[in-house]
Write a protein that binds this DNA or RNA. Sequence first.
DNA 1: GCGATGTTACTCGGATACTAACTGTCCGAGTAAGCCAGG
DNA 2: CCTGGCTTACTCGGACAGTTAGTATCCGAGTAACATCGC
Lengths: 173, 173
Amino acid sequence: MYGAREEYALHTLLNLYWAGEDAAPSARELADFQKLPVAYLRKVMSSMEQAGLVVATEGRRGGWRFATAPERITVLMVADAVAGRQRLFECQEIRARCALWPDDAPPAGAQRGTCAIHAVMLEAEAALRGSLGARTIADIALEVSAKTSSVTREGYRAWFTQRVGTRARGEGQ
Amino acid sequence: MYGAREEYALHTLLNLYWAGEDAAPSARELADFQKLPVAYLRKVMSSMEQAGLVVATEGRRGGWRFATAPERITVLMVADAVAGRQRLFECQEIRARCALWPDDAPPAGAQRGTCAIHAVMLEAEAALRGSLGARTIADIALEVSAKTSSVTREGYRAWFTQRVGTRARGEGQ
DNA sequence: GCGATGTTACTCGGATACTAACTGTCCGAGTAAGCCAGG
DNA sequence: CCTGGCTTACTCGGACAGTTAGTATCCGAGTAACATCGC
């Protein structure tokens, strides 16, 4: 159900968090840091922009920032943003098709309410979404922080500020 | 994540339930009743047989029965049987790839424990599986029974016993 | 009457199309900052 | 000094290719019940 897109998106948001408030790294920098395909990451970022999670500034010193505080961005929001509100189960209303009646004239009862099987799936989907909706980017970042040394984290931040700085001053390539 | 396979499997188990203990309908009969593709349903049934949910008797009067009481068959078991224990998320250990170190020599800390993002996904997967594991085929059947008239349900059962009967007696064309 | 044979209708498993989705790449258009030459 | 054009390095969006997974079909092999034929 969830694949590389979601993984890229979440890790990149985490990296955006490490980079710090005033960095605004570009898609290329974010991709380089994690060694991801640049062009593809751009699309992922676009999806997240449309969902209002991040915002891009254009031009030479352009780059990406959080549009919302990472404390308010849940994993569910990210998944929905890049995968487009995927359903756990796509009900085809099989119940209406039965040998006991013609296809074009099912009895009224066969279509009333939600399909019982569909209902079970919807319930499971709600459980899934509830779980994903309870965790935020900041949550995860703090969790990771607790397990890594502050030196390492400072290294991350420094890499971004240095990379972004040289680009802005035209020292690139 | 879940599609036609699961829908076919669950509806067919429900139909097996309506057919009654002593019916043993064939794949063709089960498919005809719900107007499903026969050859495909056979494969779905095979998956469920391998998982120990249903059992087939071969030969002319052959057909399908429950291998386990429908009270003990959860929706999760069915989904796992036909979809093969799908993961919600396939972690690619992206965290090990970083511009700060060479690909072939990541620091020990970067790989220790489970990836934080992966952990969130595993938790959500557990919530999903917990929800699906709490509902059984018999549950759903009783739920549907409560919403349909006994005449309708008797019609289902009669259709199967009649169909299975004529086949066994060689009156089928 | 009784056993051997053939027919029928199943299941099982593998091989094969067709379609849709995911991943990834490429290219043109628009935008903002720095640089540099001409007035 | 300062204004206009050039270069650079971004973002944005659409179009495209390669690979994989899901849906569906087909065919040959094995099996069990029934019907039929020959003894």
